[in-house]
Simulated scan of single mutants.
Amino acid sequence: MTDTATIPLADLIATRLTDALSPTTLTVTNDSHHHAGHMGDDGTGETHFSVDIVADAFAGQSRVARQRLVNRALADLLATRIHALAIRARAPGDAD
């Protein structure tokens, strides 16, 4: 069993989203350095992230439903390790 505490959180986020949503495009960005010293900064440098994801699973879904799918895939991390997550979730063919 892999100790998830030793894996960079951005990589863990990418793995979880890939497993759950099979995206065609996925970018996970660690934005924590922009929030150093702010609320939610725990000193790890892994608290604030942005996700840009394109997946067939989002087709026909509202923006809120798309965000819920992402949040569901990352639920335990959002409860324990991620302080803030910006989500841009699109279906293939959606306008940029």
Rank of each mutant, 00 (worst) to 15 (best):
M1T: 14
T2A: 14
T2F: 06
D3R: 08
D3H: 06
D3L: 08
T4N: 10
A5Q: 11
T6H: 01
T6F: 00
I7P: 06
I7A: 03
I7L: 09
P8A: 05
P8C: 04
P8H: 04
L9H: 03
A10G: 07
D11C: 03
D11F: 00
L12G: 04
L12P: 02
I13Q: 11
A14S: 15
A14L: 03
R16N: 07
R16F: 00
R16K: 15
L17D: 11
L17P: 10
T18S: 15
T18H: 06
A20W: 02
L21D: 09
L21G: 12
S22C: 04
S22H: 12
S22Y: 01
P23K: 08
P23A: 09
T25I: 00
T25K: 14
T25N: 10
T25G: 07
T25V: 00
L26H: 09
L26E: 09
T27Y: 09
V28F: 06
V28Y: 01
T29Q: 11
T29Y: 01
T29A: 13
N30G: 09
S32M: 07
S32A: 04
S32K: 06
H33C: 05
H33L: 12
H33V: 12
H34D: 06
H35L: 04
H35A: 13
A36G: 04
A36I: 12
A36Y: 02
G37L: 03
G40C: 10
G40E: 07
G40S: 08
G40A: 11
D42S: 07
D42N: 14
G43M: 07
T44P: 09
G45C: 09
T47L: 02
F49S: 06
S50I: 03
V51T: 11
V51I: 15
V51P: 03
D52K: 13
I53T: 10
V54C: 11
V54K: 02
A55H: 03
D56T: 11
D56R: 11
A57L: 02
A57N: 02
A57G: 01
A57S: 07
F58D: 12
F58N: 12
A59L: 03
A59P: 02
Q61T: 13
R63F: 00
R63I: 14
V64G: 01
V64S: 07
V64H: 02
A65E: 14
A65C: 02
R66F: 01
R66V: 10
Q67Y: 00
R68H: 08
L69E: 05
L69S: 10
L69N: 00
N71R: 14
N71T: 09
R72M: 08
A73W: 03
A75K: 13
D76I: 09
L77N: 05
L77R: 07
L77P: 01
L77F: 05
L77Q: 13
A79E: 15
A79H: 02
A79T: 14
T80G: 07
R81A: 14
R81P: 02
I82E: 08
I82L: 12
A84H: 15
A84W: 11
A84Y: 06
L85H: 12
L85Q: 08
A86P: 01
I87C: 05
I87T: 10
R88K: 15
R88P: 00
R88M: 01
R88V: 15
R88C: 06
A89Y: 02
A89E: 05
R90M: 11
A91W: 00
P92Y: 05
P92M: 01
P92R: 02
G93E: 08
D94F: 04
D94A: 13
D94S: 10
A95D: 13
A95P: 06
A95R: 13
D96V: 00
